[in-house]
């Protein structure tokens, strides 16, 4: 007897009110959650969307974060006693509001606003990715700003005293050192972002969580789909943590004595 027949037989017993042993019940629910109608493909599709959403949101977050952090640091590092650059002042103020608003409101609320107030588009996944990227940018900018400020001021002075301009000194001296220092925090942000993509499901973004919930609702059995999704997230996070650890070890090359 193959698995499909076994499933049909036991399901029939269950539906007609008969008793199944616990492992028969386990099998039926497992089969329903993952195998029947090739549902495993939906988890795969959801995982794919989750990964793409994470990558795009991360890209957007890092670009936004670098931009905001650079402007805010440059603004704060203007030489005292001289006339401040007015454009920098305005942009800095705008970015400050951006960081405050994004960090001060729940991500789920932001996603709902993007999807149902601002865009009113049916491209929920895309809108969700956009919202995630905007959200992530605010956090990444603070991480990067912290990293830039943590680099010893003597490094900037040494670079400038050699006649390098501000941007070159940032690019070759300050940013590489800051990057190494913030990599653990950035990795953490990346992992948080990966898991936060699950919030796309509240605006019908079709990622892993969305499919898990849909399958659970359909079968009136939540446990297996939820546990399945949990396992997939966990495995992804473990893989990425391992990769990040490798990168960190590589960047620590110049610390060797």
């Amino acid at each position: 007897m193959d698995l499909a027949q076994l499933y049909e037989t036991w399901k029939a017993i269950s539906v007609s009110g008969g008793d199944l042993t616990w492992w028969q019940d386990f099998f039926v629910k497992f089969y329903q959650a993952f195998i029947e109608a090739d549902r495993w493909q939906q988890y795969l599709e959801g995982t794919g969307t989750t990964l793409v959403a994470t990558a795009l949101a991360l890209l957007m977050g890092v670009i936004l974060g670098v931009l905001v952090a650079m402007v805010r640091t440059a603004h704060d590092q203007q030489r005292p006693g001289r006339r401040k650059n007015p454009v920098l002042g305005v942009v800095n103020a705008v970015f400050k509001v951006y960081v405050t608003v994004i960090r001060g409101t729940p991500m789920m609320l932001q996603l709902l606003i993007w999807a149902f107030v601002v865009f009113k588009s049916r491209q929920y996944t895309l809108v969700g990715i956009f919202g995630l990227g905007i959200n992530s940018g605010a956090y990444v900018s603070e991480i990067i700003r912290g990293g830039l400020m943590a680099v010893d001021g003597g490094q900037m002075e040494a670079g400038r005293s050699l006649g390098l301009n501000y941007l070159d000194t940032m690019r070759f001296i300050v940013v590489p050192q800051a990057f190494k220092a913030i990599l653990p925090s950035l990795g953490n942000e990346f992992i948080i972002l990966l898991k936060d993509t699950s919030l796309l499901s509240v605006i019908s973004g079709q990622e892993l969580m969305y499919f898990a919930q849909a399958i659970g609702t359909r079968n009136y059995a939540m446990m297996f789909p939820l546990f399945g999704a949990a396992c997939i997230y966990l495995v992804l996070v473990i893989i990425f943590s391992w990769l990040l650890g490798k990168l960190e070890r590589r960047l620590r090359q110049s610390d060797r004595r």
Binding site: G154, Q155, A158, F172, Q177
Partner: peptide, 8 residues
Amino acid sequence: HFNLFPNM
């Protein structure tokens, strides 16, 4: 404090 660039 020398201020050599430790990343190079």
